[in-house]
Design a protein around this nucleic acid. Structure first.
Ligand SMILES: NC(=O)c1ccc[n+]([C@@H]2O[C@H](COP(=O)([O-])OP(=O)(O)OC[C@H]3O[C@@H](n4cnc5c(N)ncnc54)[C@H](O)[C@@H]3O)[C@@H](O)[C@H]2O)c1
Ligand SMILES: NC(=O)c1ccc[n+]([C@@H]2O[C@H](COP(=O)([O-])OP(=O)(O)OC[C@H]3O[C@@H](n4cnc5c(N)ncnc54)[C@H](O)[C@@H]3O)[C@@H](O)[C@H]2O)c1
Lengths: 212, 212
DNA sequence: GTCTCCTTGTGATTAATTTCACAATGTTAT
DNA sequence: ATAACATTGTGAAATTAATCACAAGGAGAC
């Protein structure tokens, strides 16, 4: 395994959060060593796929025994770029914005929600889960002051593109978008669309194959 | 194109919700005809991929002109099994459950949230977005009475597996799971894991490639 | 230390997906 | 009606991903 030369396939990267999840489970249970077969079974994939995936980032396993849970967790976090903490802002303190602001799972993965932004005067000045809500107009200033990197878009779909423009102008590097619309942004801005409807429609598709 | 014999690739199916989203956008804008190139550009994919995908369900396009938006929307909805309405229950009326209960996007895709279930006595008997909150103990009875098919799991991770067991026993066909854990369920139960953390970690990975 | 057993790591193979390139076939203008 | 043009639909080729099968190497027993 030649370090530095290996290109990790996209398909492998896309499975890393999955591996992170089950390894975290094992870690919490106090399990320190786990075989590829065990993890694979839990995830419903083949053990050879898991081993091939892990092989891309060096021989981490112990032949005859399995993989060290802690060691593997560290490596996956490294590849996913999770060592550095990231500062987020949530734009739109509505139902979804409120849920995310109070979600501990983000904190646990090094994602710090530092601010919410709103246009509703009734919400501005209050807090959600101890996070202050600022007026949207302060976006450029607070972005610099707080060192915000990732914007979480939880505004109504009708406002989403306009808000995305503001977010880009304010200097954000990335957008985590919950509005069901394809945003148009410059090439250097990273957009991750979180399309919950897509998820449930996939489920519906399977369901209709099963029971019509 | 031989009807009935064609197997639609998984990769194609996974893109259908995406197509649905942009076609719905065009529909709202009153656009009736659209070329593969336009849609592809909007989605950041190649036009030949889109055409190949659409070719699996028969020649829907008009050579020299493009695709009829309404016609395409209908076909995609058919393939995804969206003609039939589906009845959902949300288990766990916390932050995420509340957000989903009040989300119009579900209704718009034929997904009707009929009930919420809780163990918190303070919440039982009240409503969220006009949807009644029942005690968890009533799950089996209400499932039959209301004809519930899909269970939305928005309970704390520590309770998720136990609740999943109850849901299966109550007769649900499918689970839309928001808890960050791999549920163990019988083979005939469809599980769709909605791992929001996976989404944002993918974003973080791209971010760390970009700015370190 | 040696033997046995277990599980990893990986080349080779097979399968799935994407891209390419262009014939087929429609539209629109005249 | 015909010509000029635009866009689809699709085999073939290229790329990417998943699976197989087994040699290599480490653990544990004695
Ligand atoms: N609720 C859900 O479960 C859910 C699920 C998936 C996707 N979404 C999407 O998330 C987005 C928000 O949904 P929601 O249910 O939270 O809606 P919501 O109406 O509860 O919240 C929207 C909030 O955004 C604020 N807002 C409006 N325009 C704004 C602007 N220009 N700048 C800043 N804030 C602004 C509003 O004041 C409101 O507080 C929508 O695009 C929706 O489609 C919601
Ligand atoms: N909040 C978010 O933005 C978010 C995002 C992604 C995933 N999630 C996941 O969704 C789940 C819920 O998160 P939340 O933030 O809404 O938590 P929450 O604490 O706000 O809500 C959980 C609710 O479930 C109820 N509950 C507990 N045990 C139950 C049981 N056995 N049966 C029925 N109800 C029960 C609680 O009374 C509470 O009302 C968690 O697993 C979380 O990891 C949440």
């Amino acid at each position: 395994m030649e370090e530095g030369l290996v290109v990790i396939p996209k398909a492998t990267i896309s499975r890393l959060p999955l591996y992170l999840q089950v390894l975290t489970e094992y870690h919490h249970l106090g399990i320190t060593l786990v075989s590829s077969e065990e993890i694979a079974q839990k995830l419903g994939i083949t053990s050879s796929q898991l081993r091939k995936d892990l092989s891309y980032f060096g021989g981490l396993g112990i032949r005859g025994a399995g993989y060290d849970v802690t060691c593997l967790l560290e490596k996956i976090k490294e590849i996913l770029g999770m060592q550095k903490k990231r500062r987020l802002a949530i734009i739109g303190a509505g139902k979804m914005g409120t849920a995310l602001a109070g979600y501990h799972g983000l904190q646990q993965h090094g994602l710090e929600v530092k601010a919410l932004f709103e246009i509703d005067k009734g919400k501005i000045g209050t807090t959600i889960a101890n996070i202050p809500i600022y007026p949207l107009a302060e976006l450029p200033d607070q972005t610099v002051r707080l060192g915000l990197e990732i914007a979480v878009l939880t505004v109504p779909v009708a406002a989403a593109q306009k808000v995305a423009d503001l977010v880009v102008e304010a200097g954000f590097e990335a957008i985590w978008n919950f509005a069901p619309i394809r945003l148009e942004v410059p090439d250097n801005i990273i957009v991750q669309n979180e399309d919950l409807v897509a998820g449930v429609l996939t489920l519906v598709h399977h369901l209709s194959r099963k029971i019509g």
